[in-house]
Every structure is written in C-alpha cells, then in structure tokens.
Simulated scan of single mutants.
Amino acid sequence: MLEDSFPKTVILSSPTVESVFENMSTCNIGHFICHGISVPNDPSKSGLVLSSGTLTLGKLSQKYYPNAHIMYLSACSTAEVSVRELLDEVLHLGTGFQLVGFSHVVATLWEVENREAGRVAQGFYERIRGDGKGYLGERVIARALHDIVKKQRDKQADDPLAWAAQIHFGP
C-alpha cells in the first residue's frame, strides 16, 4: 500500500536499529509496523522491537533528522503514559520522534489489533495523497487521521478499542 502511494518508498523487511537510523536520515515519512513496548517506570527504555534489538527512546533521543515530516507508529503503546507520577509528563515514543525532527507523529495509546490498525493506516495515507494539496499542506495530516478514525468509529461505535487508539501529535 505504501509503495503504491509513495513510489520512492524504501521497505526494510528485517530492520536493525542501525539501518533504521541510516534510512531516517534521508526520509521525510517514516512508518513502523512492529511491536512496541512501553516501560512505565523508565520511558527512555520504551521502544520499537526490531530484528537487532529495541530502538529505544533513549537511543532515538541522540539523533536529529532535518528532512523529517511524518512518522506513523503502527505499533502498540507508542503514546502510552501509565505511571501515575508521570501522567503530567509527555515522554513516550510519539513525542520522542517529534523531538528528533518529525513535525507530525501518529502514535497509539494502547495495544492495537493488526487488522484495525492497517485499516486506519491505509485510510490515512489515502487521505494525505488524495487531498490535492499534498501532504505538506496545512492541517492535512491531522485532518486525515481525524477523518479515518471518525469513519472507523461510525462503523464500530460500540468498540472504541478498535478505532480510538491512534492519535496525532503536531501542528
């Protein structure tokens, strides 16, 4: 789906932490489909599980990506804050990707089911490509996520766990 929408897509089928860092240096859209882990008492150890280990918030915070624009984290708990003492802190993978240069981040508040997460992601990319202004237009990213989540909500109003996990961070 991503290759159809974005012809210059590079897919890392068994990404390592190193290959991710290398590829993020030249990308403006990133998308992860993997397991995410949240470490409530030490958010710097929260991360994305890759083939060579975990891309932690601590490792990520050492980088900066000037070409970055959109990061879509289709992984569980990438925006989760579950420790009572840290509820007023916004330290998780979603904001970590913002800190390293991605102005827009889509992240998840809890575990997501693959099929539902895939539907939301597909609708999101269809909307940012079909907007006519391009994905750099004002409010296109937030609006795209809002529209697809609303569509999923209308289909499954009685099951918010299926549609309400993805949130947008950014302008």
Rank of each mutant, 00 (worst) to 15 (best):
E18N: 15
E18T: 14
K151T: 08
W110G: 02
G30N: 06
L109P: 04
Q62S: 03
L48N: 01
A79Q: 04
L91V: 13
A164Q: 07
A75M: 08
L109G: 03
S52D: 13
A162M: 11
H104R: 07
F6E: 12
L55Y: 12
G101D: 09
H69G: 00
K133S: 14
Y65R: 01
F32G: 01
H69R: 08
E113R: 15
P160I: 04
K63I: 04
H69I: 00
H104F: 06
I29W: 05
V90L: 15
V105Q: 05
D88R: 09
V105N: 07
V106I: 09
S61L: 13
G36C: 06
E126N: 03
K133L: 13
H168C: 05
N28M: 08
N67L: 12
V112A: 00
R119W: 08
M24S: 06
L93H: 00
L60Q: 00
R129G: 05
S52N: 08
N67W: 09
L145K: 12
G134K: 08
H146I: 05
V90G: 13
R127W: 15
L161N: 13
M1I: 03
I148H: 06
R153M: 10
V17E: 13
K8Q: 11
E126P: 00
F169R: 06
L91I: 14
L73F: 02
R153A: 09
S61K: 14
L145C: 03
